[in-house]
Design a protein around this nucleic acid. Structure first.
Length: 226
DNA sequence: CACATTTGACCCGT
DNA sequence: ACGGGTCAAATGTG
């Protein structure tokens, strides 16, 4: 199964799970706020799935195309990708809660750098079990300058440790902030997707969305790294 | 106490 | 020399 297929299936599974919760929520509680939260999560998950399906092929062709037109920068980037098995992802958060990305793996921060021409610093992370389990996985996270709800995440090496925590078991539904309407969240996601279209033209390998609300466990996309 | 994070110093390739 | 990445001592957290 390809990575993209895994992502789509995971997204759909999570959509089903959330819909079940919504049903039981409607049956057993009178809380409209938590139902709204569930609905907005369901909407976003389906947007993510559509997004992956619509961008996947295009990204591959765009990447190969620019590779052939010997733009030196792109070529250099491609070489780097081949050498270190790097994968760059762009994640969309909800803009609320903490500004990190929980992908189901445990990470330990070991450095941070400010960059010329960039407002936000880049964070450097290694797998917590680097020494105990010889897991060489690394990742870098940089917040987008243009949209604070977007994080560019670069993964270097895959996890060899088995300390992955399935998002399905950790998942819980976030409550809405007081007075925040569901429409606002949906709109915010759409705006972020526009920015992702721009990233796509800059040869980002693939784009994904995730929920980074503090009550939500690992993102469903992280099953890829199992 | 046993971890994690912060942050300036350090290293290394260009 | 400079920029990107990592180290490690100090500090924070449960």
């Amino acid at each position: 199964m390809t990575m993209e297929e895994k992502l789509v299936i995971n997204g759909m599974k999570q959509g089903i799970e959330l819909t079940k919760r919504l049903m039981s929520n409607i049956k057993h509680t009178s809380s409209t706020e938590s139902s709204k939260a569930l609905i907005s999560e369901i909407i976003r998950i389906h947007q993510n799935v559509i997004f992956i399906l619509s961008l996947n092929k295009d990204d591959e062709s765009i990447f190969k195309q620019s590779h052939e037109t010997d733009s030196k920068n792109v070529f250099k980037k491609q070489k780097l990708l081949d050498k270190k098995d790097e994968r760059v992802y762009v994640f969309v958060g909800t803009g609320q809660g903490k500004d990190s990305v929980d992908d189901g793996h445990s990470w330990r921060k070991y450095g941070q750098k400010d960059f010329h021409g960039s407002i936000n610093p880049r964070g450097y992370f290694r797998c917590t079990h680097r020494f105990t389990q010889k897991c060489l996985a690394l990742k870098q996270i940089q917040k987008s300058d243009t949209d604070p709800s977007i994080f560019e995440v670069t993964y270097v090496e895959n996890h060899t440790c088995n300390n992955y925590t399935s998002p399905a078991t950790k998942f819980s539904v976030p409550m809405f902030e007081e007075g925040k309407r569901m429409d606002d969240v949906t709109e915010q996601v759409m705006v972020s997707l526009e920015d992702l279209e721009n990233k796509k033209r800059k040869n980002v390998v693939m784009t994904l969305s995730f929920s980074n609300h503090e009550n939500v466990g690992g993102g469903w996309q992280s099953n890829v790294f199992m």
